[in-house]
Design a protein around this nucleic acid. Structure first.
Length: 416
RNA sequence: GCGGCAUUGGUGAAGUGGUUAACACGCUAGUUUGUGGCACUAGUAUGCAAGGGUUCGAUUCCCUUAUACCGCCCCA
């Protein structure tokens, strides 16, 4: 048997209802904030990701799906959404009209060891805003994601925010961190020893050493922000207060890649095994890094798979409106043509209609109508065909009425 | 990439080195060929992830592979 690839899964049944709901609600929320939809290719030139995300981490080389195409070009399946959109902004010169408020949804690919909530093909949705450094936009972006998660019904969503300043600030802070840790680095785990010179910010969210006093007393990046950076951060916090966003400042929050500047944030559920379900920040240098003009940018991405996990974990009910309006069943095969035509007409009128096409017993035809949760059942036998009087049954009350086929639409319009 | 643990039907699962792999749900059919969802009856894995090995004999033991999950790494 041919099996699915490691870290991928099929979406059908209940899961597809959830996926559909999660996507549609995200679209609705984004539209209510006046964001437009953007879709970029899943496959891009490798340089886009290998350059755009920076090289202090080796994740990109290790964990992307890279391959040569038939023309010997290096291609990569996108591991995230931001770089492709940034490329599209530059290539299509979308920056001539600013700001651009965009949302996206799609599959990303990462060559990782799968676990729960962690797949090789993962689905993400997110937003990107180009061309504004106004803290109001920062607050808007954060609140969009927050409100979406709230509206989904997730309980106890919390936003952790931090500001990691600009390049200059971060270099100063980096030095301060190295100085702070270097005399006691022996107390830390082997990974942290590695990190000390490579990426000392990463020590801050080490899982092994997170109870270490030296780590707890580490200098805070917030003390290294310059006046402007500090002012911006304060404004963002103020706006978040106005917007009633439940956030906490976490000066140990550092995002994985080094293209972030100033505000960074993460959305967190209170389901322990799942934790962070998305995150983002500002990346004012990204466009420039991949060969475009210097344009401010901010965005976030949410992991759809993890959102679904939280929905399952917290038993959140998905309002589903995929029930059938009418199920038409025939008693004899000779009525099928009549039923077919009726179904067609009702569908043209906008009703969700299905009909029995099997030669099953009456019992099974009824069962099938139940499986689809049909609101009404229309029963057609030879008598109905002759007289054009249909039996319509309310599947909730089980009451039946005989009505003329010409009055059917009127009947349905008033009842559904 | 490393370590651990697991894999029995459509689903939830019980079970054993030895003739027919329990039970439940579901599904199919009948009692009931113009009205079901209840009830009763019957059917429903030629096979226990795949391949190989040990054995008189393996679903049960061993190896390899695949996949899931947990931890590490990492988390754009």
């Amino acid at each position: 048997m041919i099996q699915k690839l490691k870290g991928t899964y099929d979406v059908f049944g209940d899961l597809s209802i959830k996926h559909d709901y999660v996507k549609k609600l995200f679209q609705a929320v984004c539209e209510s904030y006046n964001y437009s939809y953007i879709e970029t290719p899943i496959i891009e030139r490798s340089e886009l990701f290998h350059r755009g995300v920076g090289d202090t981490t080796d994740i990109v080389k290790k964990e992307t799906y890279d391959f040569l195409d038939r023309g010997n070009r290096n291609n990569t399946l996108r591991p995230e959404g931001t770089a492709g959109i940034a490329r599209a902004i530059i290539e299509n010169k979308l920056y001539t009209i600013l700001p651009q408020k965009l949302w996206y949804i799609g599959s990303m690919y990462r060559y990782e060891r799968p676990q729960k909530g962690r797949y090789r093909e993962l689905r993400q949705m997110g937003v990107e805003v180009y061309g504004s450094n106004n803290p109001i936009i920062d607050a808007e972006v954060i609140s969009l994601g927050y409100n979406y998660l709230k509206e989904l019904g997730l309980k106890n969503i919390c936003v952790r925010i931090n500001s990691i300043g600009g390049l200059e600030t971060r270099n100063k802070y980096r030095e301060a961190l190295i100085n702070h840790f270097k005399n006691n680095i022996d107390e830390f785990c082997d990974d942290c020893k590695e990190r000390l010179n490579k990426n000392p910010l990463r020590i801050l969210d080490c899982k092994i050493d997170n109870k270490n006093k030296i780590l707890k007393n580490a200098p805070s990046i917030l003390d290294y922000l310059n006046e402007e950076e500090k002012g911006n951060f304060d404004k963002i916090k103020k706006y978040l207060d106005i917007l009633n966003i439940d956030y906490i400042v976490d000066d140990k929050l550092v995002r994985g890649l080094d293209y972030y500047t100033n505000i960074v944030f993460e959305y967190e559920s209170n389901v322990k095994s799942i934790g962070a379900i998305g995150g983002g920040g500002r990346y004012d240098n990204l466009l420039n890094e991949i060969g475009g003009p210097s344009i401010n940018a901010i965005g976030f991405a949410l992991g759809m798979d993890r959102i679904i996990d939280v929905i399952n974990e917290e038993n959140i009910t998905i309002p589903k409106d995929n029930n059938l309006d009418i199920y038409i069943l025939t008693i004899n095969e000779s009525e099928n043509e009549y039923a077919l035509e009726l179904a067609q007409n009702l569908r043209m009128c906008g009703y969700k209609v299905d009909l029995d096409i099997t030669g099953k017993t009456m019992k099974n035809k009824f069962k099938e109508s139940d499986r689809y949760n049909s609101k009404y059942i229309i029963i057609i036998g030879d008598e109905e065909v002759k007289t054009n009087m249909l039996v319509i049954r309310d599947n909730l009350t089980k009451e039946e009425e005989k009505i003329d086929v010409d009055n059917l639409i009127d009947y349905l319009d008033t009842h559904i």
